[in-house]
Design a protein around this nucleic acid. Structure first.
Lengths: 145, 145
DNA sequence: ATGAATTCGTCGGTAAGTCCAACGATCACC
DNA sequence: GGTGATCGTTGGACTTACCGACGAATTCAT
């Protein structure tokens, strides 16, 4: 209860950003856990749907995930019959990763859960503020748009 | 350069928040590295100054750091003559942690570096927007104020 | 005052996440 | 056709966060 001020640290945007991100990560992780999914699994699933049949390297670059770690995620998803790796006939080095029907179905549930978690995260903000906030975040995050 | 759209994931605030926080952490870490400091070392140093002579448990609670991890950080800081642990005469379980003159001096340089990194992080935002942004962050981050 | 419960600093280990180096296989280029 | 680059994959190093347990010391209840 007796929260000391700590003005210096708490006024640093990078500090607040880290705390807010941690809270968001926890909320989303908890929501996804009810579908037996982890954050990266959801992200990969979503990216696979958006990018259609896609090579793993492109996939990893698109979401900023190390190729090695992507292998493990895809192994999990493929074992659960959520995605398929097929050899790309045009380039036999590549795997064409696509969503299965099961994957598409689960993805929708994950998105619903993630949206609910985000609503809870942004609860202290009005609708207009949320739009502003995400817009600013988009500019700051360095994700080239 | 060939940035695919990925609309679903990139519109999630929790995702953008994570990316922005990662960028902020990297920028701050790089800036602090020039003073041979890590993020938590800077945070602890700042909190020690703000909280005066403080017990380790209170210190850890104030910044949300595990007591065990705090031990290591304080060991480093004390070895570098930046803080001192003195036995609290009123409660011999506690260590009264205080800043040394060296610590105060280094902290100022760290704060300057951290502020510069934050300016770079928030460069895409106008001054008014930065104020708005940090205010929203403060509400979202869940740090009781 | 004496015993029980709590808090303190410290040590231990686990689990997850991030990053880099290297390899065989395949492709692109000139 | 030989060289360099890219692909998926494997291995390991490093960091971070988190939880439980312990002796020492304090507080509280009786």
């Amino acid at each position: 209860m007796s929260e000391a001020p700590l003005p210096a640290i708490r006024s640093l945007p990078s500090w607040l950003l880290g705390r807010a991100a941690a809270r968001g990560r926890t909320l989303v992780a908890e929501a996804l856990a009810e579908e037996d999914m982890r954050m990266w699994h959801h992200v990969v699933l979503s990216a696979v749907r958006d990018l259609g049949p896609v090579a793993q390297a492109d996939l990893g670059r698109g979401i900023g995930l190390d190729p090695k770690d992507l292998v493990g995620i895809l192994d999990d998803l493929q074992s659960a019959d959520l995605v398929v790796r097929e050899p790309d006939p045009k380039d036999r080095r590549k795997n064409a990763v696509s969503l299965t029907a099961r994957g598409a179905r689960l993805l929708k549930r994950c998105e619903k859960a993630a949206r609910a978690a985000n609503d809870e995260l942004l609860a202290p903000l009005s609708a207009a503020e949320r739009e502003q906030f995400t817009d600013m975040l988009r500019r700051i995050s360095g994700t080239a748009g």
